[in-house]
Nucleic acid binder design. Structure first.
Lengths: 259, 259
DNA sequence: CGCCGTCTTGAGTCGCTTCAAGGGTAGTGG
DNA sequence: CCACTACCCTTGAAGCGACTCAAGACGGCG
């Protein structure tokens, strides 16, 4: 499996992520250490980077493209647990076997560090271990937010939330350079099948819901992966997470109306 | 709110958790430090320990009882994100505002550390920071497993999984002393409403499903919180996570039959 | 060109929620 | 001590959101 991938020293092709992820604000010594250890790797869409319940030979971060981490039930049902965009880290330090499979949801470029080597650097640079702690806490926050989404939101709300999350990420300073000035455009970097596996629904429901949003003038479908947001306010309301909503309707009915 | 709680120095009532959680295997100096900092606190069922989006004044671990961490949508829908049992830690170090509300799902005893003080100890004892990293990674694993459960399992599967998870926890060496020899009995430490909010369903569905399991001889209902497992094999099959299931049925239909 | 994967759309079905009602038990106060 | 309230759990009936199944359009690639 690894034989299919390209591995080459980072020195030839410098990692562009100095301003993101683990390298951001790192002390010069630490950064030098990481650059020495890092190797660029290119994977094609669909390729498996680390298998479920497999050893984790390396950790790293996404340079370009999208990685998905997913779990599979014995009968074949799959759930995407995390989408990793440029700047995100993948792989678990100190975890000998992975609890998820990590696969390329698009063609990706990765910056990989051998796990053992990375852990050795962590031991020598407490700032790196601290940074990892914060990074994993952030991941945990995102996971718990996803639990809320899957546990008590409708398909419409999930899709609206997802689009808004993508939008927020795209507007972050780090990624802004990649899409200059294209504010009302949301680019979904994955196919419907992955959206469905991430949002806990089906491709058909996603298709129907997005078409319905377009019919109501919330967005315009440029092509299946690109949307122009026409009414951000309404999209936010559809997400069920709008702060300006009536604060408390008094105690819970579990489902919201689709309005 | 805090005025309702009892706070007293741990020295009077020694924390019984030397063998669990952060204190386990800690060096004597670190343990002394933590004992100095820790304060026992008792909360009655329903009490809020830390509110959503509030400051986190302390972190700590559960001594007895059950804590729930939950998120609330603006329209009142709630989702329990985590159940914290004896030995589990609550609160986030380095996180100034909590992303969840932490509430007592039963009467609980907590061992609390002031957050600032705890962080100071972490700075002086790298072993503590490392231990926290591992602990949060474990939490992340659990959260991602819950995403799988909520994203693609039926209500029956969720309930069976939940019961088996409780069972596994009860059998852990740490907790085993508390329930000696009562192997086939599962005690559910929370009410139906909390189960529903944790499993992403409704009290009615839970009630129906459990009654159905009893009718089929999978378990016997001793009382609403206690069940005797009559057919663990079948319960495991119902959970949809049995390892001995046909490994691959070939690609995914999203829902499983209820068999 | 023909195959394959992706996306869309329609029709039918069903699992689960919603709504409604009843019994049981704990806690409270007269 | 006993009403009285409140909450918890259960059960039934009805409705609906989302899934399943099926078919067709579109586009890329060997």
């Amino acid at each position: 499996m690894f034989a299919h991938s390209m591995l080459r020293p980072i020195s030839n092709d410098r990692c562009a992520l100095h301003s993101c992820s683990v390298c951001r604000d790192a002390s010069p010594e630490l950064r030098a250490e990481l650059e020495r250890l890092g190797r660029l790797r290119i994977c094609r869409r669909g390729e498996t980077v680390v298998g479920e319940e497999e050893d984790t030979p390396f950790v790293g971060n996404v340079v370009s493209g999208v990685l998905r981490t997913q779990k599979t039930l014995h009968d074949g049902r799959q759930q995407i647990v995390e989408l990793l965009l440029p700047g995100d880290m993948f792989g678990r330090v100190f975890a000998h076997t992975s609890r998820v499979s990590i696969e390329a949801a698009s063609n990706v470029t990765l910056c990989c560090f051998g796990r053992a080597g990375f852990e050795a650097v962590m031991a020598r640079f407490p700032e790196l271990e601290h940074r990892m702690l914060l990074s994993i806490m952030e991941e945990l926050n995102a996971a718990q937010d996803w639990i809320l989404l899957l546990g008590c939101q409708t398909v419409t709300e999930r899709i609206a939330s997802f689009l808004l999350i993508l939008r927020r990420r795209a507007l972050r300073p780090c990624a802004a350079a990649a899409t200059p000035g294209a504010f009302p455009i949301i680019r979904v970097p994955i196919c419907r099948r992955d959206m469905a596996a991430y949002l806990g629904t089906t491709v058909e429901s996603i298709s129907r819901t997005i078409q319905e949003m377009a019919r109501r003038g919330v967005l315009r479908i440029i092509d299946p992966q690109n949307f122009e947001i026409l009414d951000e306010r309404r999209l936010s309301l559809l997400s069920g997470r709008d702060a300006t909503e009536k604060p408390f309707e008094h105690v819970a009915t579990r489902r919201a109306s689709i309005a």
